[in-house]
């Protein structure tokens, strides 16, 4: 039954690869272009979370507090992990440094904004949903533009 052994080996390799992709092994950036691609992907991922929170904040009166809390916690966590992962990649040159600060400025702002909103939700409700939505919209579109520019 050589075929079965081969299949088992393949399965083992697959599981190993799968575990790696789930746990988000971050590979180092080889050059400026590679770094820019990573920056773009980070901005896109952050934009997605920000847009989601914007949708929820705009429809805040339609959602229960428990649900909003869970949704915003997830979003804050995912922004946090995106931030951490990107922060762990070494920029290869000075040119990349500028890009790095551009991206991390925006993603940190986004993370802070979402965490502030989360605190408000826990205290009973978002105080100024319209203004929060505008801020999120601005952050979202800037992140999106950055993501589109580096892909």
């Amino acid at each position: 039954m050589r075929g079965q052994d081969a299949r088992r080996a393949l399965a083992a390799v697959t599981v190993a690869l799968a575990t790696c992709s789930v746990s988000g092994c971050v590979s180092p950036a080889w050059d400026d272009h590679d770094y820019a691609l990573k920056a773009g992907a980070t901005a896109q991922a952050a934009a997605s979370s920000v847009e989601l929170v914007r949708l929820a904040v705009q429809g805040e009166h339609d959602l229960t507090t428990a649900y909003l809390k869970v949704l915003l916690t997830d979003a804050a966590e995912s922004l946090g992990s995106v931030n951490d992962q990107f922060g762990g990649v070494q920029p290869p040159s000075d040119a990349s440094d500028r890009l790095r600060s551009q991206v991390t400025d925006l993603t940190s702002q986004a993370e802070d904004e979402v965490e502030d909103l989360l605190i408000e939700v826990r205290r009973g409700g978002i105080e100024q949903p319209d203004e929060a939505a505008r801020t999120l919209e601005r952050l979202g579109s800037e992140l999106r533009r950055l993501g589109e520019a580096h892909r």
Binding site: Q44, S48, E51, L52, R54, L55, Y67, V70, L71, D74
Partner: peptide, 11 residues
């Protein structure tokens, strides 16, 4: 349209 990636049940 908002280019949101879904990956949790909450979303």
């Amino acid at each position: 349209p908002a280019q949101v990636q879904v990956d949790t049940l909450g979303q």
